[in-house]
């Protein structure tokens, strides 16, 4: 691994550890190997969002050309968000692509991701299904509790929470059709 990259990651690692966000348990990084090429990140779901109370694990891969190229980041924790793939965890965020600047750090990346969780952009989705459902939910203010009800009913029937969500969202939150699919 290039000298600059390792040097930078070492330094940034310390920066995150010392930052005030860590003190508040909002962000966290862990080294996965000695060569500083792979890290585990963790961000807390921002308050006043559906993600509040959740901890989201991230996989961070540092390329050889870091910091001249952005780190490769994806969600390990399954997440339902229009700009994050619900299957692979791939993230659609400009600073992880062409808007990356060499002066940015792991701390700024983690904070930007946290900001992305609180400000979704359903019009530019990574996951089209999630983008569409989010737009529908945003249109109808009571939808949220309605969805919770439907999930609860499926869970009561013995379905796992995650499976219930998948089935419901793929059938446009039609409880009958989701049930049919789950028990067929």
């Amino acid at each position: 691994m290039a000298n600059i990259a390792a040097q930078r990651i070492k330094r940034e690692f310390k920066e995150v550890i010392k930052s005030e966000e860590v003190a508040k348990c909002a962000i966290k990084v862990e080294l996965l190997n000695d060569s500083y090429t792979e890290l585990k990140g963790e961000i807390a779901g921002p308050p006043d969002t559906p993600y509040e109370g959740g901890n989201f694990i991230l996989e961070i891969k540092v390329p050889e050309t870091y910091p001249f190229n952005p780190p490769k980041v994806r969600f390990i924790t399954k997440i339902w968000h229009p700009n994050i793939s619900s299957v692979t965890g791939a993230i659609c965020l400009d600073i992880l692509k062409d808007q990356w600047a060499a002066a940015m750090t792991l701390r700024t990346v983690l904070l930007s991701l946290q900001a992305l969780l609180s400000a979704a952009e359903p019009d530019d989705p990574q996951d089209a299904v999630v983008g569409d459902s989010i737009k529908k939910i945003l249109k109808c203010p009571h939808a949220n509790s309605d969805c919770d009800d439907k999930i609860k009913r499926l869970v009561d029937m013995g379905v796992e929470d995650h499976q219930a969500r998948v089935a419901l969202s793929s059938y446009n939150w039609d409880l009958e059709r989701a049930t049919e699919q789950l028990f067929s």
Binding site: F68, A101, A102, A103
Partner: peptide, 26 residues
């Protein structure tokens, strides 16, 4: 040295007239 690295990485990605400063949001 950082400028040199920055330019080499960008050029290898096919960028030339559009190479920007390394600072954030600049």
């Amino acid at each position: 040295d950082c400028w040199t690295m920055h330019f080499e990485v960008q050029i290898n990605q096919g960028i030339s007239t559009g190479i920007a400063c390394m600072a954030r949001d600049c």
